[in-house]
């Protein structure tokens, strides 16, 4: 049985509760409950959903701050610049509306599923995770925060309070392509997030790509990113994407698809993402 359930309204109380003993954190609950089907609900729970200061997205000088409790619905409806389009597209594809209304961005990265739709987008946005405990506050690039399949660098007494997204160049735009075997409520076979910016003369000044569901943790594609820098945006750009650019990926065979298929599909989707963004740019 659950021997303790706390739902504090103040962050200090929450952090004190975490310092006090090991607790399972519950936010939207959309990963928490499905992992406990037919099983007793045991242990101590810290429900963080009353922490108002963890909700919503705000703009600072150099960064956008996405509160850990920001729901996918919040993301979809927030007035945000074009380089968040990819994250919004991801939000629309996380589960159904019920899941989007409850599920949080913080929960998505903390749950650290290889198929988490938020992660590739946030990686492509160079996002940084802010963690707080009763002792300290620290920040960690998302790429270092998620360390493996369902593993993160979060310490048991730490709360993820926000995801910080540094502003890319002004004209950056982004997209997200998700491939799954059905339309709604689908766990990705492959997904690609991309952010691209060009200068006035149309040459690429900023390129970020991340691919999810093709490795234990979503991976950036640095070779491709540097390949594209300085190139002229346009229909020819997509043709530059080659299989060797996908070397950070290590897809596996599973019930959803074969490894080979995942690899090929990732290549196609990255090309399509480049194609889409270079038309926008």
């Amino acid at each position: 049985m659950i021997d303790s359930y706390l739902r504090p309204a103040k962050i200090d109380h929450a952090l004190a509760a975490l310092a006090d003993r090991r607790r399972v954190i519950v936010a939207g609950g959309t990963d928490f409950y499905p992992q406990r089907v037919g099983k007793p609900l045991t242990g101590a729970v810290l429900d963080i959903t009353a922490l108002q200061e963890l909700k919503g997205i705000c703009e600072d000088r150099d960064v956008y701050r996405i509160g850990a409790l920001t729901t996918w619905t919040d993301v979809i409806h927030a007035p945000l610049p074009a380089w968040f389009d990819g994250l919004k597209l991801a939000g629309r594809e996380v589960g159904g509306v019920q899941v989007q209304n409850a599920g949080t961005v913080g929960g998505n990265i903390c749950n650290a599923s290889p198929a988490a739709d938020g992660t590739p987008n946030l990686l492509a946005l160079d996002a940084v995770v802010e963690l707080r405990s009763a002792r300290h506050t620290r920040t960690l690039p998302l790429a270092e925060f998620v360390t493996g399949n369902r593993r993160t660098n979060r310490k048991p007494d730490e709360l993820v309070t926000a995801i910080l997204v540094p502003k890319p160049p002004d004209r950056a735009c982004s997209t997200f392509l998700k491939l799954g075997p059905r339309k709604y409520l689908v766990i990705s076979i492959v997904m690609v997030a991309a952010v691209l910016a060009t200068s006035d003369d149309g040459s690429v000044t900023h390129a970020r790509f991340a691919v999810g569901a093709c490795s234990a943790v979503a991976q950036r594609l640095p070779a491709l990113e540097s390949e594209l820098l300085g190139r002229q945006a346009g229909p020819a750009l997509a043709a530059l994407v080659e299989a060797r650019h996908l070397s950070p990926l290590s897809p596996i065979d599973d019930i959803r698809a074969t490894a080979r298929y995942r690899h090929d599909a990732a290549l196609i989707l990255v090309r399509r993402a480049v194609g889409t963004l270079s038309r926008h740019a």
Binding site: G29, Y33, P34, G95, Q98, N101
Partner: peptide, 24 residues
């Protein structure tokens, strides 16, 4: 399903649809 997958448990919470099997 008790896992968010079927939506049979959908209710409105403050006017928004949620799966009642995943709401504490």
């Amino acid at each position: 399903c008790n896992a968010g997958d079927c939506g049979a448990c959908t209710v409105l919470l403050d006017g928004e649809q949620v799966c009642a099997c995943m709401v504490p």
